[in-house]
Nucleic acid binder design. Structure first.
Lengths: 96, 96
DNA sequence: TTATATTTGCCAATATTTGTCAAGACAATA
DNA sequence: TATTGTCTTGACAAATATTGGCAAATATAA
Protein backbone atom coordinates (compact mmCIF):
# COMPACT_ATOMS: atom_id res chain seq x y z
CA UNK A 1 0.00 0.00 0.00
CA UNK A 2 0.96 3.58 -0.60
CA UNK A 3 2.43 5.52 2.27
CA UNK A 4 3.56 8.89 0.99
CA UNK A 5 0.75 10.51 2.85
CA UNK A 6 1.10 8.44 6.00
CA UNK A 7 4.81 8.99 6.26
CA UNK A 8 4.37 12.70 5.98
CA UNK A 9 1.66 12.73 8.63
CA UNK A 10 3.86 10.87 11.05
CA UNK A 11 6.69 13.23 10.32
CA UNK A 12 4.53 16.26 11.02
CA UNK A 13 2.93 14.74 14.09
CA UNK A 14 6.15 13.72 15.79
CA UNK A 15 7.74 17.02 14.91
CA UNK A 16 5.00 18.63 16.97
CA UNK A 17 5.26 16.13 19.79
CA UNK A 18 1.73 15.00 19.34
CA UNK A 19 0.69 11.55 20.43
CA UNK A 20 -1.47 9.41 18.19
CA UNK A 21 -4.27 9.71 20.67
CA UNK A 22 -4.02 13.47 20.76
CA UNK A 23 -4.16 13.81 17.02
CA UNK A 24 -6.92 11.21 16.87
CA UNK A 25 -9.05 13.01 19.38
CA UNK A 26 -8.74 16.29 17.54
CA UNK A 27 -9.70 14.56 14.33
CA UNK A 28 -12.47 12.78 16.20
CA UNK A 29 -11.53 9.25 15.24
CA UNK A 30 -10.11 6.29 17.08
CA UNK A 31 -6.38 6.18 17.71
CA UNK A 32 -6.07 3.00 15.72
CA UNK A 33 -7.15 4.77 12.57
CA UNK A 34 -4.35 7.26 12.69
CA UNK A 35 -1.92 4.48 13.41
CA UNK A 36 -3.09 2.64 10.34
CA UNK A 37 -3.10 5.73 8.20
CA UNK A 38 0.48 6.52 9.08
CA UNK A 39 1.53 2.99 8.23
CA UNK A 40 -0.40 2.94 5.00
CA UNK A 41 -2.90 0.31 6.12
CA UNK A 42 -5.81 2.67 5.71
CA UNK A 43 -6.67 5.71 3.68
CA UNK A 44 -8.05 8.74 5.41
CA UNK A 45 -11.29 10.13 4.08
CA UNK A 46 -10.71 13.02 1.76
CA UNK A 47 -12.94 15.31 3.81
CA UNK A 48 -10.71 14.86 6.83
CA UNK A 49 -7.65 16.34 5.19
CA UNK A 50 -8.40 20.04 5.75
CA UNK A 51 -8.89 19.56 9.48
CA UNK A 52 -5.83 17.35 9.65
CA UNK A 53 -3.76 19.99 7.91
CA UNK A 54 -4.98 22.56 10.35
CA UNK A 55 -4.11 20.44 13.37
CA UNK A 56 -0.66 19.72 12.00
CA UNK A 57 -0.18 23.26 10.77
CA UNK A 58 0.60 21.88 7.38
CA UNK A 59 -0.19 23.03 3.88
CA UNK A 60 -3.56 21.60 2.86
CA UNK A 61 -2.58 21.35 -0.76
CA UNK A 62 0.56 19.43 0.04
CA UNK A 63 -1.43 16.85 1.99
CA UNK A 64 -4.12 16.68 -0.67
CA UNK A 65 -1.50 16.03 -3.28
CA UNK A 66 0.10 13.26 -1.28
CA UNK A 67 -3.27 11.76 -0.49
CA UNK A 68 -4.32 11.78 -4.13
CA UNK A 69 -1.01 10.33 -5.21
CA UNK A 70 -1.56 7.45 -2.80
CA UNK A 71 -4.98 6.77 -4.23
CA UNK A 72 -3.61 6.76 -7.75
CA UNK A 73 -0.72 4.58 -6.78
CA UNK A 74 -3.01 2.02 -5.21
CA UNK A 75 -5.05 1.99 -8.37
CA UNK A 76 -2.25 1.46 -10.84
CA UNK A 77 0.22 -0.55 -8.84
CA UNK A 78 0.65 -3.97 -10.35
CA UNK A 79 -1.15 -2.98 -13.53
CA UNK A 80 0.88 -3.69 -16.62
CA UNK A 81 -0.66 -0.77 -18.45
CA UNK A 82 -0.17 1.68 -15.60
CA UNK A 83 2.30 3.86 -17.37
CA UNK A 84 0.33 4.24 -20.53
CA UNK A 85 -2.88 4.96 -18.65
CA UNK A 86 -1.17 7.60 -16.54
CA UNK A 87 0.22 9.28 -19.58
CA UNK A 88 -3.17 9.31 -21.24
CA UNK A 89 -4.87 10.86 -18.23
CA UNK A 90 -2.18 13.45 -17.83
CA UNK A 91 -2.83 14.53 -21.39
CA UNK A 92 -6.58 14.59 -20.90
CA UNK A 93 -6.29 16.71 -17.80
CA UNK A 94 -4.07 19.21 -19.50
CA UNK A 95 -6.50 19.75 -22.34
CA UNK A 96 -9.12 20.99 -19.93
CA UNK B 1 -17.65 10.74 -16.19
CA UNK B 2 -14.92 9.18 -18.24
CA UNK B 3 -15.91 7.57 -21.48
CA UNK B 4 -12.74 6.60 -23.32
CA UNK B 5 -13.51 2.99 -22.61
CA UNK B 6 -17.21 3.23 -23.33
CA UNK B 7 -16.75 5.02 -26.60
CA UNK B 8 -14.31 2.42 -27.78
CA UNK B 9 -16.66 -0.39 -26.82
CA UNK B 10 -19.49 1.15 -28.75
CA UNK B 11 -17.22 1.62 -31.72
CA UNK B 12 -16.16 -2.00 -31.65
CA UNK B 13 -19.65 -3.30 -31.06
CA UNK B 14 -21.29 -1.38 -33.87
CA UNK B 15 -18.47 -2.22 -36.21
CA UNK B 16 -19.38 -5.84 -35.67
CA UNK B 17 -23.10 -5.23 -36.00
CA UNK B 18 -23.79 -6.46 -32.53
CA UNK B 19 -26.83 -5.27 -30.64
CA UNK B 20 -26.54 -4.24 -27.03
CA UNK B 21 -28.59 -7.22 -26.08
CA UNK B 22 -26.36 -9.58 -28.00
CA UNK B 23 -23.21 -8.29 -26.40
CA UNK B 24 -24.90 -8.21 -23.02
CA UNK B 25 -26.04 -11.78 -23.27
CA UNK B 26 -22.57 -12.96 -24.17
CA UNK B 27 -21.16 -11.04 -21.24
CA UNK B 28 -24.00 -12.39 -19.11
CA UNK B 29 -25.28 -9.05 -17.86
CA UNK B 30 -28.37 -6.99 -18.46
CA UNK B 31 -28.59 -4.90 -21.60
CA UNK B 32 -28.90 -1.74 -19.57
CA UNK B 33 -25.48 -2.26 -18.08
CA UNK B 34 -23.76 -2.23 -21.43
CA UNK B 35 -25.73 0.81 -22.42
CA UNK B 36 -24.55 2.59 -19.32
CA UNK B 37 -20.98 1.47 -19.77
CA UNK B 38 -20.86 2.76 -23.32
CA UNK B 39 -22.22 6.10 -22.22
CA UNK B 40 -19.86 6.33 -19.29
CA UNK B 41 -22.55 6.08 -16.63
CA UNK B 42 -21.06 2.92 -15.22
CA UNK B 43 -17.70 1.28 -15.02
CA UNK B 44 -17.39 -2.30 -16.06
CA UNK B 45 -15.81 -4.63 -13.57
CA UNK B 46 -12.16 -5.21 -14.29
CA UNK B 47 -12.64 -8.98 -14.44
CA UNK B 48 -15.10 -8.61 -17.30
CA UNK B 49 -12.63 -7.01 -19.64
CA UNK B 50 -10.92 -10.16 -20.94
CA UNK B 51 -14.20 -11.76 -21.95
CA UNK B 52 -15.39 -8.50 -23.46
CA UNK B 53 -12.21 -8.21 -25.49
CA UNK B 54 -12.71 -11.73 -26.74
CA UNK B 55 -16.29 -11.08 -27.78
CA UNK B 56 -15.32 -7.89 -29.57
CA UNK B 57 -12.16 -9.43 -30.99
CA UNK B 58 -10.22 -6.57 -29.52
CA UNK B 59 -6.85 -6.30 -27.89
CA UNK B 60 -7.23 -6.98 -24.17
CA UNK B 61 -4.42 -4.64 -23.27
CA UNK B 62 -5.92 -1.79 -25.21
CA UNK B 63 -9.19 -2.14 -23.37
CA UNK B 64 -7.46 -2.53 -20.04
CA UNK B 65 -5.53 0.64 -20.67
CA UNK B 66 -8.64 2.59 -21.55
CA UNK B 67 -10.47 1.18 -18.58
CA UNK B 68 -7.68 2.10 -16.21
CA UNK B 69 -7.39 5.56 -17.71
CA UNK B 70 -11.08 6.08 -17.04
CA UNK B 71 -10.69 5.07 -13.42
CA UNK B 72 -7.79 7.44 -12.99
CA UNK B 73 -9.61 10.23 -14.73
CA UNK B 74 -12.62 9.83 -12.45
CA UNK B 75 -10.29 9.97 -9.49
CA UNK B 76 -8.43 13.15 -10.42
CA UNK B 77 -11.02 15.09 -12.33
CA UNK B 78 -11.87 18.28 -10.53
CA UNK B 79 -8.91 17.95 -8.17
CA UNK B 80 -6.73 21.01 -8.21
CA UNK B 81 -3.64 18.95 -7.47
CA UNK B 82 -4.37 16.36 -10.14
CA UNK B 83 -1.42 17.19 -12.29
CA UNK B 84 1.13 17.13 -9.54
CA UNK B 85 -0.21 13.88 -8.12
CA UNK B 86 -0.13 12.23 -11.53
CA UNK B 87 3.42 13.30 -12.07
CA UNK B 88 4.44 11.96 -8.69
CA UNK B 89 2.85 8.58 -9.31
CA UNK B 90 4.36 8.31 -12.75
CA UNK B 91 7.77 8.76 -11.19
CA UNK B 92 7.07 6.25 -8.45
CA UNK B 93 5.93 3.65 -10.93
CA UNK B 94 9.00 4.04 -13.05
CA UNK B 95 11.35 3.49 -10.14
CA UNK B 96 10.01 -0.05 -9.68
C1' DT C 1 -48.87 2.89 -36.32
C1' DT C 2 -45.94 -1.47 -34.89
C1' DA C 3 -41.76 -3.55 -33.79
C1' DT C 4 -37.25 -3.28 -32.13
C1' DA C 5 -33.39 -1.01 -29.86
C1' DT C 6 -31.62 1.85 -26.47
C1' DT C 7 -31.80 4.70 -22.36
C1' DT C 8 -33.11 5.88 -17.75
C1' DG C 9 -34.61 5.63 -12.91
C1' DC C 10 -35.21 2.88 -9.22
C1' DC C 11 -34.53 -0.98 -6.10
C1' DA C 12 -32.30 -5.03 -3.81
C1' DA C 13 -28.20 -7.61 -3.26
C1' DT C 14 -23.41 -7.40 -2.65
C1' DA C 15 -19.06 -5.53 -1.69
C1' DT C 16 -16.11 -2.13 0.19
C1' DT C 17 -14.90 1.30 3.45
C1' DT C 18 -14.94 3.27 7.85
C1' DG C 19 -14.85 3.38 12.75
C1' DT C 20 -14.72 1.13 17.36
C1' DC C 21 -13.26 -1.99 20.62
C1' DA C 22 -10.23 -5.09 22.89
C1' DA C 23 -6.17 -7.50 23.11
C1' DG C 24 -1.32 -7.65 22.12
C1' DA C 25 3.47 -5.81 21.37
C1' DC C 26 6.91 -2.79 22.76
C1' DA C 27 9.70 0.40 25.44
C1' DA C 28 10.85 2.97 29.52
C1' DT C 29 11.27 2.83 34.34
C1' DA C 30 10.14 2.05 39.12
C1' DT D 1 9.66 -8.24 37.51
C1' DA D 2 5.61 -5.50 37.45
C1' DT D 3 3.68 -1.11 35.92
C1' DT D 4 2.68 2.49 32.91
C1' DG D 5 2.06 4.60 28.56
C1' DT D 6 2.20 4.37 23.54
C1' DC D 7 1.40 2.19 19.47
C1' DT D 8 -0.24 -1.80 16.62
C1' DT D 9 -3.28 -5.38 15.12
C1' DG D 10 -7.39 -8.12 14.20
C1' DA D 11 -12.25 -8.86 14.62
C1' DC D 12 -16.52 -6.96 14.24
C1' DA D 13 -20.51 -3.74 13.13
C1' DA D 14 -22.19 0.31 10.88
C1' DA D 15 -22.16 3.24 7.10
C1' DT D 16 -21.42 3.85 2.11
C1' DA D 17 -20.70 2.62 -2.50
C1' DT D 18 -21.11 -0.53 -6.33
C1' DT D 19 -23.41 -3.80 -9.05
C1' DG D 20 -26.98 -5.99 -11.60
C1' DG D 21 -31.73 -6.40 -12.88
C1' DC D 22 -36.31 -4.84 -13.78
C1' DA D 23 -39.58 -2.02 -15.98
C1' DA D 24 -40.99 2.16 -17.81
C1' DA D 25 -39.61 5.81 -20.96
C1' DT D 26 -37.58 7.17 -25.09
C1' DA D 27 -35.69 6.75 -29.54
C1' DT D 28 -35.19 4.51 -34.20
C1' DA D 29 -36.75 2.07 -38.18
C1' DA D 30 -39.97 -0.11 -41.15
Amino acid sequence: MATQFGERIRELRTKQNLLLRQLASQLDVDTSIISKVERGDRQLKKEQIPLLAQILKADVEELQTLWLADQLYNMVQGEPMADEALKSVTKQIKKK
